[in-house]
Amino acid sequence: MRFPEFTGEWKEHSLSEYLEFKNGLNPDAKRIGKGIPFLSVMDILADGVINYDNIRGKVEATEKEIESFGVNSGDLLFQRSSETLEDVGRANVYMDNRTAVYGGFVIRGRKIGSYDPFFVKYLLATPLARKRTCRMGAGAQHFNIGQESLAKISLYFPSMEEQQKIAEFLSLLDERIATQNKIIKKLETLIKAIGNKLLFGDEQNIRLGNILIERVEKSTTNNQYEVLSSTVKGIFSQRDYFSKDIASENNTGYKILRRGDIVLSPQNLWMGNINHNDKFDIGIVSPSYKIFTISEEFDCHYIAFLLKTRKALYGYMSVSEQGASVVRRNLNLEAFYELTYKIPHIAEQRRIGQILSKLKDKIESEQTYLEMLRAQKQYLLSNLFI
Rank of each mutant, 00 (worst) to 15 (best):
K308L: 12
K121P: 03
N144R: 11
D87H: 15
G74A: 04
I363D: 05
A193M: 09
N92E: 08
P127A: 10
V71I: 10
R351A: 12
Q180S: 15
I145W: 09
A312W: 02
Q79Y: 04
R80W: 03
K233D: 14
G48N: 06
T293C: 13
K290R: 15
L381K: 04
I363T: 00
E20P: 01
S248T: 03
I386S: 00
L170N: 06
G315D: 06
N181G: 15
R215T: 08
N205Y: 11
V285Y: 06
K308V: 10
S318P: 08
V227R: 08
I166K: 03
R80Y: 08
S382Y: 01
E168W: 10
S237A: 11
F385R: 07
L359H: 11
K182T: 14
R56Q: 05
V326P: 06
D53I: 00
N223H: 13
R130D: 04
I352L: 11
F78H: 08
I294G: 05
S295K: 05
Q79T: 11
E321D: 11
M95E: 02
K186Y: 14
K185D: 13
A138L: 15
I343V: 10
L339V: 02
G353Y: 04
Y115F: 11
C134T: 11
K192W: 13
N54I: 01
K165D: 05
S154K: 02
M1Y: 13
E321I: 05
F200Q: 06
E348S: 09
P4R: 10
A61W: 02
E296Q: 12
N144G: 11
E63F: 10
I191R: 12
S171N: 09
S230D: 06
R239K: 14
L313E: 06
F105H: 06
N332E: 03
A167H: 04
S73L: 08
K165G: 06
E203C: 12
N92C: 08
K192Y: 14
I184L: 10
P127F: 12
K11S: 01
G283T: 04
Y289V: 02
S365Q: 12
Q180A: 15
D116F: 00
T133E: 02
I36L: 08
D96F: 02
L228S: 03
S159C: 01
R80Q: 12
L306T: 02
I346W: 09
S288H: 15
G201P: 00
L198C: 12
L212A: 05
Y102P: 02
E338Q: 13
S81Q: 00
S14Q: 09
G234I: 08
D87C: 12
T84M: 15
S16I: 03
D174N: 08
R328D: 07
Q376H: 14
G283Q: 02
Y94T: 03
G74L: 08
A91P: 04
I303A: 00
P127W: 09
V216G: 07
A46E: 11
